[in-house]
């Protein structure tokens, strides 16, 4: 059935987008870093999972245990030694955003260059749990469902820790107003670094999970960054539920366009959706009005 053929894979893809966007909203919403190298980190994690699977026969789900701590450590170092200086230097939020965009634009090319050296420009994929499964007359590979399940688990855990723990509450306080958070005794610099590292960990999860069912190459990070940004902005910066809804919406729209119109036009569809939302509601679907 065509409708199920679109909705099911669309939701799987959308769940991935929501997970990736969740990491970006932590980095941008809390640490105020607009990280343009985000998609490159994702592709790097995908390559990591690929190497572990094809070299050591390690399952991608086991690779998560390795990829996430490494990604968190690298992101924390990036924040601590590069980005934190910019945050201190910037006079206002605008200047900080621009500086962080520029630096991470440089980082993007470093990571991409390293991947090109290591893997070249060709496409990669591997077959893990690619067992077809029929649900409501539509065929879906098991690896996609496993990926969706993991994304839901990780996303749910992050949501709960943001809303139910002391540290999570402090992190949300920083997202609302860093200066006010500082005044009530929250260590903004340390927690921003933590949030940035966590965002990096989430993108590694996304990269590993996506590598299970999509083909990827060293140059396609930009596309993932764009989609994550679109989801974050559509959902409203810092809004977890907004990111989930926007991510699912984007996944379904993309699958529908690929299926009904032309697979080459999915990015155009993403942009159209993005612009449509921005023109009608500049603060995002669930964003609050700016003061």
């Amino acid at each position: 059935m065509l409708l199920v053929d679109i909705i099911l894979p669309g939701l799987v893809l959308g769940g991935m987008y929501a997970l990736i966007a969740l990491g970006l909203t932590l980095q941008y919403g809390v640490a105020r870093i607009m990280n343009l190298s985000y998609g490159e980190s994702l592709v790097a994690a995908a390559f990591g999972a690929f190497s572990l699977y094809s070299g050591l026969g390690l399952s991608p789900l086991a690779a998560l245990l390795l990829a996430v701590p490494i990604a968190m450590a690298l992101n924390w170092l990036l924040y601590r030694f590069l980005l934190e200086r910019l945050m201190r230097r910037g006079k206002d939020r605008g200047a900080q955003e621009i500086d962080s965009i520029l630096v991470t634009f440089g980082v993007l090319f470093v990571i991409q260059g390293a991947m090109l050296v290591a893997f070249g420009g060709q496409y990669y994929s591997y077959g893990y749990l690619s067992i077809p499964l029929t649900i409501m007359g539509s065929t879906l590979a098991v690896n996609r469902l496993v990926a969706l399940l993991f994304a839901a688990l990780v996303g749910g855990a992050v949501y709960l820790s943001l809303t139910r723990t002391r540290i999570g509450t402090a992190v949300r306080a920083i997202a609302v107003d860093a200066n006010a958070a500082r005044l009530v005794g929250i260590d903004v610099a340390a927690l921003s670094g933590l949030a940035f590292a966590f965002g990096g960990g989430l993108v590694a999860v996304g990269g590993v999970l996506i590598s299970m069912f999509l083909t990827f190459n060293a140059a396609m990070g930009v596309v993932f960054t764009m989609k994550a940004l679109v989801v974050v902005i559509m959902g409203g910066v810092g809004n977890v539920i907004g990111a989930l809804v926007a991510g699912l919406l984007l996944g379904v729209v993309e699958t529908a366009v690929a299926r009904l119109v032309d697979p080459g036009l999915t990015l155009a569809a993403t942009y159209a959706l993005f612009l449509g939302v921005l023109v009608i509601k500049p603060t995002g679907l669930f964003g609050r009005a700016a003061s």
């Binding site: 590069l82 910019l86 630096v103 440089g106 980082v107 470093v110 990571i111 991409q112 260059g113």
Partner: peptide, 15 residues
């Protein structure tokens, strides 16, 4: 290694 060096120079300039 062109793009790696490019990226490093860029980060350096911004910093």
């Amino acid at each position: 290694h062109f793009s790696i060096v490019l990226g490093v120079i860029f980060v350096f300039i911004v910093m």
